[in-house]
Design a protein around this nucleic acid. Structure first.
Lengths: 193, 193, 193, 193
DNA sequence: GATGAATGAGGTTTCATTCAT
DNA sequence: AATGAATGAAACCTCATTCAT
């Protein structure tokens, strides 16, 4: 997508049309607006992510910490796959679309909130099942986890290091589950894959 | 700042000049460019954050987990103060400046990398002192922590809930240090303020 | 006709095609051009008017002022009927078609000239018969009469008052034949219907 | 004015700017819109005409038919002068501006109505003074007179004959005051100049 | 130093017309 | 014969930047 390479505002309709090999008037047969195409892109990436979260199983599917860890790993794999297949989409979602207009910002904010509510449901299940801390501030922690995930994606997009994604992915899970503190009294879990 | 209310591309030189109470030609005596002013703003916010990190003490200052926790808390307080004093600056840094051009994106990316290197130094100290896990992927985890911090700020900017910042702030420290898993064999630390 | 409701320039080929219930490509089987359809419309309205003038009898048919007055009345009735049946046509002729291009303006000008020549023939007959003033500037007065007629139509199109046409119609005939001056020495003709 | 030569829709901002010898962006410092400039032109021509009517003296100034005839003659001179000085203005008013949009059409219609009301005031005075017919349909006749005047202007704009204006001008006054009928019993007034 | 009038590149969008199906 | 997808010329308009005053 031209937007992710050049940026939304730097991309003219003529650029898009030229890349698609169509006349620039043709563009307006399929999209209402320049903004309209961005909306479609955003919708598409959000849908992909929603699907990825759904594929990671229902919130109530995990009975143990290991189950939950596996769910998280599957989500990481799904998101990595999306990132690999369509690397531009996240750039548009996270870097470009945030500065178009209040309505678009709202749309993205709402999507993050939706993600946080999903995570919240997982947390609720974990607390009910007893494998998550009972004193968890579910809502706040869910937002933090969502932030971790998307900032991980963002940072690996812009990084040169192709290995960083995998390592941050692991670091997220490790930190989420165990924290970073050493445990003199506790056998550290082995690194999750 | 006009940029944070209206957005960079929606803000004209005339808007800025009017707010500053100067003629819009005069603007060019003080700034090279429209882009130039954004650069100044970004530099200013980055400086504020660098100062906040410096105020939280040197990486080697903490000998125990409690020290480190206190450092983190001080950093949280400092950032919260900046956010409170100049709420627009972060919006510009995190939402607007990311979509200007590759050079500007690079500048922000580099700043995040710098932050991550700072955090890395804290982690190195913690591992040397023995209060952080010895198997920590320092670099990746540092990036994750930076991502947590800035995504927390970002999310609280756009949220209606004024209390969310404090709660996410706590959630970040809690998760960072202990993870979210329950510890049948371990007395959970009390909630840090 | 779409042109009279929306205006020529505000009307797209697609509007016309939709109203005709055909695809907008099909339009070009029946008309050369967008302009071409306007030409047809103009031709049609001019033909109607020419027919109306013909129906009012030959220029030489009237022997007396009363005959001529009756001819004028018949013409008024005919034009009123056209105006009532197809109110949009005059709007197109008098308001829209005048601003398309020089050729179209010329066409309308020529039509008015033709009308004036017709009127001229009536005047010539009237002068020969002796019931019109012998010092009449036939050509100029014919143009004035044509102007009166069409401006009457135009003004009644845009007026809210549905009675205005009839009253202006009478006023035209009254003014034409007797003028507006009072005649202390002359019994005013009774108001013609 | 470019509008009167090329037509409103055929005239681009670039044409106007080129003719004025300014950059086309400069145009927008002085006019809101393309339409805005037309509005100014229309206002200007209407003002000229209003002034011309005012110069022809107050409605109540004439005590006799001769006075009124002189007023009419002065009005004719004034309008002829405007027509001579700025021939394009009337073309725009009468041919172009009528097909822009309903609001503009309304504006012109309203102006004609205003003219008719002025004429009405003259008629009222004439009837009160007794030099105009007592059975005059003032409102309708006023509209007809206004129509005569403007259609005279319109026809002479488009005619090749430069003498036509003067002749139609006379014909209007002659017809208005005496009609065109011969008067066996009445000494025709001599042709007014 | 300060100003704001002037500029024109460049953007988005419309729509009459063509032409393969 | 009928269609409507495709086209691209051309329109209007914005706004960052310059420069004479």
């Amino acid at each position: 997508m031209e937007f992710s390479e050049r940026g939304y505002h730097q991309t003219g309709i003529s650029h898009i049309a030229k890349r698609l090999g169509i006349g620039h008037g043709t563009f307006y047969r399929y999209f209402e607006n320049k903004r309209d195409i961005l909306e479609h892109v955003i919708d598409s990436v959000c849908d992909k992510i929603r699907l990825a979260m759904a594929e990671a199983n229902a919130p109530t599917a995990s009975k143990t910490l290991e189950d939950y860890e596996a769910q998280l790993a599957r989500l990481g794999v799904s998101l990595s796959r999306i990132l690999h297949e369509t690397p531009g989409l996240f750039r548009i979602l996270l870097l470009e679309a945030t500065s178009i207009d209040p309505e678009m910002t709202r749309r993205i904010t709402d999507f993050f909130d939706w993600c946080a509510r999903q995570v919240d449901a997982y947390f609720e299940n974990g607390m009910r099942q007893g494998f998550l801390r009972s004193d968890l501030d579910r809502q706040a922690t869910a937002h933090v986890l969502v932030g971790m995930i998307f900032s991980t994606i963002l940072m690996t997009i812009n990084a040169g290091d192709p290995d960083l994604l995998k390592r941050m992915n692991s670091a997220v899970r490790r930190m989420l589950l165990d924290g970073i503190a050493s445990r003199p009294d506790f056998q550290n879990r082995s690194e999750p894959t």
